[in-house]
Design a protein around this nucleic acid. Structure first.
Length: 710
DNA sequence: ACCGGTTTTATTTTT
DNA sequence: TAAAACCGGT
């Protein structure tokens, strides 16, 4: 059945039908841009463009998965529609690097370093340079390295960080190559290098992907733009969709000017404005417009809606962060009773992950189901990282970061002395540490015996982890090495102990599931005639690890009906009927980068307090709400143990007072309304029932909080 | 080399 | 406040 375009507005329709040449779609918040992209893809398919010729790029893997689903649904679930390539820039990079690994000097199974691994590498390089690694903030160095490598603006040339990073740069890249590993930037840089050095490879990709669509274009960085230019070639079938008002990744190299100057890069492009908002009530939209309106240099847009005004925006001042959280919890209960808004339609948004704590506590106390997205995930836990390092090291002993991380965990008598000696030999012979371990253990004095054992261990599992049954091998490895005991020993109390063990178990379970799924897919594929190249990642454990680096904390399990807690960055592209935007205080939103102890303003020389971007962040948060928006702040906030007075965010002053209901919670807290009390009592009984082992209560809000275990 | 207790230090956002 | 870094005794 043919695609029905009659439900689109004229601008949306134009964006769908203009299939040839460069197109810029400026899509305001809630203007139906995902819808437009999906329709555009399906329209292309109907015009006879083969699915394999379409590449749609999204910003996150989650967005990619949703887009795929949406396209398939819109196309009536045809197999052809599922062959459209929807991926992130980085996942696309993995695909290219994997397909062409020989030409970029990488093994077929390369590792992808995450931020922690990168930091470990830089620390090691600093030590090699005999620079005091305490004088430099490694994270900041990594930021500069990234800018240097991706061709960002040069910093001040005699800044000591710039100098240090410049000296580090070649060693860093050599280190990566020696390990057969890449970092995030490499996934963009290496394809660019490949295309520059091997024009025939570029031609191959140009011929393959004839229609390009990019979502969240305002968040692209320079290498990403270059990649698009190269792929688009003379054909220039490039459609970019985005909103300059929602550019919130400048700190990662994103350039708003890409979207603002698209017409200069692609002259003759068609420019389409989507200005009708289908998401938010009038009051919410007007308040958001008032906040964003203060930014200079925007693409002129006037978002409008034909929905009603809805209730006023609520602005709440709580005496403390704790009270702020309690109030939100109470309101959630009240709203879900009075207005029948289910938890899954409610979100609590904040600027920093650290703000989640009090909310978690208050919600747990109130018996509201919730789910924290992002933040410290399973994979940031030390014990899990150790486990992963074991897997990486056994699979690829050249991965020194992983190898050195676990060589003495749990303690097996290979201490700092021995490791330092080995690294010395490494430098002298210009060979990987692994070779020293495996070929010349005798030179490592009395630890020699231990080393031999360790090498044997790695060899024993290296093969098994690279083959079928790797999830089983992983468990055996963990048991043989004694990682469970190690975790148990390192825990302060019983609860922490249990958490550690559970985290490791969760990872092992995930491995089992991953392997099972992969086997299923392989079976299906061998049945279907066309042996497909659709798989961008390597197979087996190494594919899992690759995915992990790019994917890590995208919660894919829905985890039931729960209130969502996440950062503003995480919230982009999502929407809820009711949104609590919290911590509207100077120094927090707008965030001021460094010490905002008292007054909150201590501007730093570089990059601190990007007010325009903070404003956009606030705008993004506000426009997530469909029906109801609540902005909260605390008069006093506990920071680092001690309470600190806070001043209201300047963004609050930008909202016209007639759109606002002001609520001041200073003074004693009034008794909770009846509905709240009832709900609390209910959830208390529910949790009792649960404790006593009865089957899951049928009512809503059992008291167990849910942290999405992806 | 290892262990336990003590001190310091860090706090943005993430592919 | 909590986790990481550090120190000194075994």
């Amino acid at each position: 059945m043919p695609l029905d375009l009659s439900l689109l507005n004229p601008q949306q329709r134009q964006a769908v039908l203009t299939t040839e040449g460069p197109v810029l779609v400026l899509a305001g918040a809630g203007s139906g841009k995902t819808r437009v992209i999906a329709h555009r893809v399906v329209h292309l398919l109907e015009r006879g463009v083969p699915a394999k010729a379409i590449l749609a790029v999204t910003f996150t893997n989650k967005a990619a998965a949703e887009m795929k689903e949406r396209i398939a649904r819109l196309a009536g679930g045809t197999p052809e529609s599922r062959r459209v390539l929807v991926s992130t820039f980085h996942a696309f990079g993995v695909r290219v690097v994997r397909e062409q690994h020989g030409k970029v000097g990488l093994p077929a199974r390369f590792a992808i370093l995450d931020a922690g691994d990168q930091a470990a590498l830089v620390k090691r390089l600093l030590r090699d340079l005999k620079v005091d690694d305490k004088r430099f903030d490694v994270g900041r160095l990594l930021g500069i390295l990234s800018r240097l490598r991706t061709g960002g603006a040069p910093g001040h040339p005699d800044d000591e960080y710039e100098l240090c990073a410049a000296e580090l740069l070649p060693k860093y890249e050599l280190g990566l190559r020696a390990m057969g590993a890449v970092d995030f930037d490499d996934l963009l840089i290496l394809p660019l290098k490949l295309f520059a050095e091997h024009p025939e490879a570029l031609e191959q990709y140009r011929a393959r992907y004839r229609y390009l669509i990019v979502d969240e274009y305002q968040d692209t960085n320079d290498p990403q733009l270059k990649l698009l230019e190269l792929l688009a070639g003379l054909r220039r079938n490039l459609c970019v969709v985005g909103d300059d008002d929602q550019s919130i990744y400048a700190w990662r190299g994103a350039q708003v000017r890409h979207i603002q100057q698209f017409d200069r890069k692609f002259p003759g492009c068609v420019e389409i404005f989507l200005e009708q908002n289908y998401r938010s009530n009038g009051n919410i939209l007007e308040a958001a417009n008032a906040v964003i309106g203060k930014n200079p240099g925007r693409k002129p847009k006037r978002l409008w809606t034909d929905r009603g005004r809805g209730p006023n925006v609520r602005v709440v001042a709580a005496p403390s962060d704790e009270e702020e959280a309690k109030h939100v919890a109470d309101e959630i209960i009240r709203i879900s009773y009075e207005e029948k808004i289910p938890p899954r339609e409610i979100a609590i948004l904040y600027r920093t992950n650290a703000q989640a704590r009090p909310f978690e506590e208050a919600l747990r106390l109130a018996g509201v189901r919730y789910r924290v997205v992002g933040g410290t995930s399973l994979f940031d836990r030390k014990e899990v990282r150790d486990l992963i390092a074991y897997l990486k090291a056994a699979l690829n002993p050249r991965d020194e970061i992983a190898l050195l991380r676990i060589v003495n965990v749990p303690a097996r008598g290979i201490g700092d002395q021995t490791v330092a000696k080995a690294q010395e030999l490494t430098r002298a012979r210009k060979c990987p540490v692994w070779d020293v371990f495996s070929d010349a253990p005798a030179e490592l004095a009395h630890a020699a015996g231990r080393i031999v054992e360790f090498v044997a261990l790695m060899r024993k599992y290296g093969g098994r982890l690279g083959a079928k049954g790797f999830s089983e091998a992983a468990r055996e490895l963990v048991e043989e090495v004694g990682l469970f005991e190690e975790a148990r020993r390192g825990a302060q109390n019983v609860a922490a102990q249990a958490r550690k063990l559970e985290a490791m178990e969760a990872l092992l379970r995930q491995l089992i599931e991953y392997e099972k799924r992969e086997e299923q897919k392989a079976a299906e594929r061998s049945l279907a005639s066309g042996a497909d190249d659709g798989e961008p990642f390597a197979s087996g454990l190494s594919g899992y690890l690759n995915r992990l680096a790019l994917d890590s904390k995208e919660a894919d399990g829905e985890g039931g009906d729960a209130v969502t807690l996440m950062t503003l960055h995480g919230a982009k592209g999502l929407e809820w009927r009711c949104v609590f935007l919290c911590g509207l205080e100077e120094g927090l939103l707008p965030h001021s980068g460094r010490g905002f102890d008292d007054a909150g303003v201590e501007p730093r020389a570089e990059g601190a307090l990007n007010l325009e971007e903070e404003r956009r962040l606030c705008y993004v948060g506000m426009t997530r709400a469909r029906e109801r928006l609540v902005l909260t702040r605390a008069v006093e906030r506990v920071k680092r143990g001690k309470p600190v007075p806070r001043t209201p965010s300047r963004f609050l002053e930008d909202i016209p007072p007639d759109l606002v209901d002001l609520i001041d919670l200073s003074g004693p807290r009034p008794a909770a309304p009846k509905a709240v009390q009832e709900a609390k009592a209910r959830s208390f009984f529910a949790s009792m029932t649960e404790l006593l082992g009865d089957p899951e209560p049928a009512g809503q809000a059992p008291a167990r909080p849910g942290r999405a275990p992806r």
